[in-house]
Computed example of a mutant assay.
Amino acid sequence: MIPENYGHLIVGKSYVVTQEFTDYDGLRHSPGETWTYLGYDSFFYDAGLTLYISPGDSIRLQDADLFQRHIVSRLETYIG
C-alpha cells in the first residue's frame, strides 16, 4: 500500500459515498457509506486500482472500458 493521496482523496480524511457504484469484486457501495482513506496500490499490467480504507477494508477497481473506468475517471462524483 502506498500511503499517499490519490486524486481528491487525502490520506486520513473521512469520505462518504455520494453515488452508488459497484466495485471490481461486485460489492455495491451505497450512498451514506463512510470510511477513512488510507492509501492505494496501482497495478499497471491489468489497470487495477485498490483503495485502502478503514476499518481494515479495500475497494478494488479496474480502469478499463468494460469495468470501472467510468468510476475511476470521476471518483469525486461517487466519493465526496
Rank of each mutant, 00 (worst) to 15 (best):
T22P: 01
F21K: 01
S73E: 05
E76L: 02
I2W: 09
G12E: 05
T22F: 06
V16G: 10
M1D: 13
F44H: 12
I53V: 11
V17H: 04
D25F: 06
S14F: 08
E76T: 12
M1R: 03
I10P: 02
H8W: 01
Y6M: 03
S14Y: 04
R60E: 15
L61P: 00
I71K: 04
D57F: 14
E76W: 07
N5V: 05
F67K: 07
I71L: 00
G48D: 06
D41W: 14
Y6N: 02
D25P: 01
G32K: 10
V72W: 02
E33Q: 14
G12A: 09
D41V: 13
E76G: 09
G26A: 09
D65A: 09
G12T: 13
N5K: 03
S54K: 09
H29V: 02
H8Q: 08
R28S: 12
I10G: 00
I71N: 00
T50H: 06
K13N: 09
R60T: 06
D57A: 12
D25E: 13
S14H: 08
F44I: 14
L49M: 07
G56S: 10
S58E: 09
L49N: 08
N5L: 05
G80V: 03
T50G: 11
Y52T: 10
R69D: 01
Y6S: 09
N5I: 01
L75M: 08
E4D: 15
L61C: 05
G12I: 07
D57S: 15
G48Y: 10
T77H: 10
F67E: 10
Y24S: 08
G12Y: 05
L75F: 08
G56P: 06
I59M: 09
Y40M: 04
P3F: 11
R60S: 15
L51Q: 04
D25C: 10
P3C: 12
T77M: 03
Q19G: 00
R69T: 00
W35M: 07
G32M: 02
G32S: 05
T36P: 12
D65F: 00
R74L: 01
Y40W: 14
D57W: 11
S58Y: 13
E76R: 09
Q62R: 15
D25V: 02
R69I: 00
Y15C: 04
I71E: 02
E20H: 04
F67L: 15
L66R: 10
G26V: 03
P55M: 10
A47D: 15
S42Y: 14
G32L: 06
S54A: 15
R60V: 04
E4G: 05
R60P: 04
T22E: 14
I10N: 07
D46A: 07
Q19V: 09
M1W: 11
G80M: 02
P31Q: 03
E4N: 15
P31G: 05
V17L: 03
I79A: 04
H8R: 06
L49Y: 02
Y6L: 02
I79S: 01
L9M: 08
I2L: 13
A47H: 15
L9V: 00
G7C: 00
D41M: 14
I2M: 11
T18C: 03
T36L: 11
I53A: 08
S58H: 12
H29C: 05
S42D: 09
T18H: 01
V17C: 03
K13M: 08
D25A: 06
Y40K: 01
W35S: 08
L38M: 11
